[in-house]
Nucleic acid binder design. Structure first.
Lengths: 334, 334
DNA sequence: CAACCGTCGGCAAACGTTTGCCCATCGGGT
DNA sequence: ACCCGATGGGCAAACGTTTGCCGACGGTTG
């Protein structure tokens, strides 16, 4: 277990000064090619890799990015993490994954602790309120996903548009009364979707009854299912797939045929949406691309040679039809 | 976007030397309590957080750990990541998540790049061969999960034992001929399970036919299902849940009733195992605990005041019975 | 031949923190 | 009056890297 070689070792081995070794490895053309080759050769032989700490200290850039998610076990974030990580790695950055545990305090604690150490942060579905978020956005470069912040770059996934599309799909199947099992009041997505549904409902001549709020997890699905049944709807749009899973659980338990008696639509197309029977019709969110885009935006902001405006990227969704939606059951009209 | 405060700022604000400020914040009792309070107060007001880079350079410890997994999208690793991360964070460590992309080169590249920067590594289901793994284990502190390395600490999940239990379960349901849809030849787990199955089969009076190797992912399931059908077995043990999902897909497609005509057992109890219909009977691996234990082991090795032997922790599994297993169909004996 | 320029290498400072060492002060024992 | 130990604080070096600056050398131009 020997100490890793440093630039000093490489320099000594190739008979040059440390500064020359540094430049040979990082500044192409700055040193004589012959010398550079000698240095690179020595580095390779010694198995040299630069210390990020040393680099960070001297350059002020750590090439580390914090990736903060409210709950690492929620499959919704897997795609985002993956997309972000892939893009960051392509640029030689590493990321530190932070589980904020759905808690504002934990999230702020992490940001505070990491601020001197990371170059920036990607906040996915932050639980911070607007004021805090704005304050933090002045503190260091950050990009949000699905959480618009004034004068700040961010990525939005247009699930609201997808919700409109899903409603049209249901309307085309003959559904006339549809429930929306909504997410947390604090969710910006939820507010937008409710607004879209209102106007789309009018246009399509469909009645939409809003339910909830529900916590977007499987355990809350049964309550949503029961509420939907009580409202006498023939289809339910769930805030996310997890909630939809729970709804399917409960409908199966109560012996309600899906999609024969009730259609169910999820949102996000997370892992598992095509595992459940019947397969879940859902609004597919390009999660990986969202992570990708978030990383792109952050890297652009981090690049000193960059103009530096703020951009908001909105990603489209598309409807994936599986088995959980079907034609509306015939209703007895009194 | 102002530069984060440093120890120098804190020291200036509280009228002490940098060294005193450092000690006030990290060495309880070393400075006068009154002074310490003043320093801490200043640090709080300024929103000071130590720079990990600075710390790392001076102390030689970065408090960062690399967490290497072959594929971040495989739900098998979610639990491990979560468990490891939680334990590390409790000790003030952060982790860098590395996706080795199922590639030996990528895995080694990451290890090489990270070696000067992290204090140690957790390797989950490493794809490295024994020699390389042993070589790396001499280079810096590491702990493996599900991959024993001589003279090195590691965590093993006893899926082999679970497999024996699963076979007993099937035997008790009357199955007399069972297939094992195995994983990659390189997998240590797979080899152990085959060995256990051989002796258990003899003891239980069950015939076990080995199939495979299959790549442990859903897409490979159909091939396994067809092979099992061809062998005329009444039950199949899959290398992991992903493979089992694919098997269920194919059986449904071919109109084979599960568990009426064929029982299916998975392994790991990943997210989704209770989503599929019928629910998947599976060997539940305590993944989060495994991550936890791995982090524990690594932290112990990292602690300079630690004895420093190597330990192997073996975690038990348990069988979760869901709907995918049932009594064996009556067979026509010629 | 002088003035100049381009190329290439080295020196040393800087980044933020920890820590070994030293010094000043103070209280108490002889 | 003297010494001693304990306490609390500061100085400065060290960690590994980057980079501004300078200097040496050789070649070209006037």
């Amino acid at each position: 277990m020997t100490r890793p070689p440093t630039l000093r070792d490489v320099a000594a081995a190739s008979g040059v000064a440390i500064s020359t070794a540094s430049r040979a490895l990082t500044k192409p053309g700055r040193v004589n090619e012959r010398t550079a080759i000698r240095v690179r050769e020595a580095a390779r032989e010694l198995g040299y890799a630069p210390s990020l700490s040393g680099r960070a200290l001297s350059s002020g850039r750590t090439r580390m990015v914090a990736l903060v998610v409210p709950d690492v076990t929620n499959p919704y974030f897997f795609g985002i993490v993956r997309g972000t990580a892939a893009r960051l790695r392509a640029d030689g950055y590493v990321h530190v994954l932070v589980d904020a545990e759905e808690s504002v305090e934990a999230e702020e604690r992490a940001l505070r602790a990491l601020r001197p150490t990371v170059d920036g942060a990607v906040l996915a579905a932050s639980r911070l309120d607007d004021d805090r978020l704005t304050a933090w956005s002045h503190e260091f470069p950050m990009v949000t996903v699905n959480r618009p912040v004034p004068d700040q770059s961010g990525v939005l996934v247009d699930t609201a548009g997808g919700t409109g599309q899903a409603l049209a799909h249901l309307a085309s199947l003959g559904h006339r009364r549809v429930a929306y099992a909504g997410g947390p009041r604090a969710s910006w997505s939820d507010r937008r979707r409710r607004a879209v549904l209102r106007t789309a409902a009018k246009r399509l001549g469909v009645e939409v009854v809003g339910l909830g709020p529900f916590v977007p997890r499987r355990e809350d699905g049964p309550a949503a299912a029961d509420a939907a049944l009580h409202e006498g709807v023939t289809a339910v749009l769930a805030f996310d797939d997890l909630l939809a899973f729970g709804i399917l659980d409960r409908l199966a338990e109560r012996g309600i045929d899906v999609p024969g008696s009730m259609s169910v639509v999820g949102c996000d197309d997370v892992f598992g949406a095509d595992l459940v029977r019947p397969g879940l019709t859902t609004i597919a969110a390009p999660l990986e691309r969202a992570g990708h885009a978030a990383a792109d935006l952050l890297l652009a902001r981090l690049d000193p040679a960059h103009p530096g405006g703020t951009v908001t990227v909105e990603l489209p969704t598309h409807l994936v039809i599986r088995g959980s939606t079907g034609t509306a059951p015939l209703r007895v009209v009194r």
